[in-house]
Computed example of a mutant assay.
Amino acid sequence: MDPDRLHISYAMRQFADETWTGRAERWTAKFYVPNEKIGAAEITRVIPGVTPNPRAALEDDPGLLDRIPRVIFGEDGSLAPAVSALSPVLLLLLESVRVSEAWRGKGVGMRLTVTALRRLAVPGTVAVCYPAPIHDHGPDEPCSYASDDPEVRRPDEEAMEKLRRAWEQHGFRPIGEGVYARRIEP
């Protein structure tokens, strides 16, 4: 299958909190070829200065955005200096990217995600991500990230290093605590 023949569909849902109505949304970009879903990306859009305290709101409804809001927003919702220096008019917070097993390791998910980010962007947009593998486990189950055993952590650490290099190849740069950002133009 030619990766240039892949398709992206979008679905949007707004936050239910009344102070977020019309000001922030979560987008799902689904990647597919005819009759086969390849993967999906979850992206949260935040408008700096308009969205009231995005850090507090994302603490109430974080999805998989546990680290990004703490790094890019101050306690009062203001932009952290590293993000403020990029002068964003819109922030696209990449919550997660999942790609089916058959398509992993081919750069398809990364390329489609960057394309999805561009289509949601306006001039002056900054995209933010935390390159790390996704863990599907329950709240009471141990996470290998938190393990004291280096052998348990090693696969995740190796995966994180590969993901960081891949995002860097697409122009993302570290801004703090493993979080990466770059300007994205439509």
Rank of each mutant, 00 (worst) to 15 (best):
A159N: 01
P155Y: 07
P186K: 13
P186N: 14
G63V: 05
W103M: 07
R164I: 13
L65M: 08
G49I: 03
T51I: 07
A132F: 09
S87E: 11
V114R: 11
S147W: 09
L90F: 03
D4K: 14
E101T: 12
I43V: 14
P52T: 09
H137T: 04
P3A: 12
A146K: 12
P186M: 11
L93N: 03
P48I: 05
R118L: 07
P34K: 03
P54Y: 06
M12L: 08
P69V: 06
I8D: 01
R98L: 07
G178W: 10
P88F: 05
E185L: 14
V99C: 02
R55S: 09
R173W: 00
I8M: 07
R13N: 09
M160P: 00
V50T: 12
P62T: 07
P174C: 08
V89F: 08
V152E: 14
P174H: 05
L6A: 14
G77C: 11
P3I: 06
V71E: 08
S144I: 02
M110K: 10
E75Q: 12
L120D: 01
A181D: 04
D61C: 09
L64K: 14
D156T: 08
R104N: 01
W27C: 05
S84L: 11
R118P: 04
Y10P: 01
P88V: 02
A116T: 07
P186G: 09
E157A: 06
L6C: 13
P123R: 08
V108W: 08
S147G: 08
G138M: 12
G77M: 11
S147C: 06
D60G: 11
I38W: 03
T21F: 06
K162A: 15
L92P: 02
P142L: 05
R13L: 11
A24Y: 09
A159M: 05
V89H: 10
L163A: 15
E161I: 01
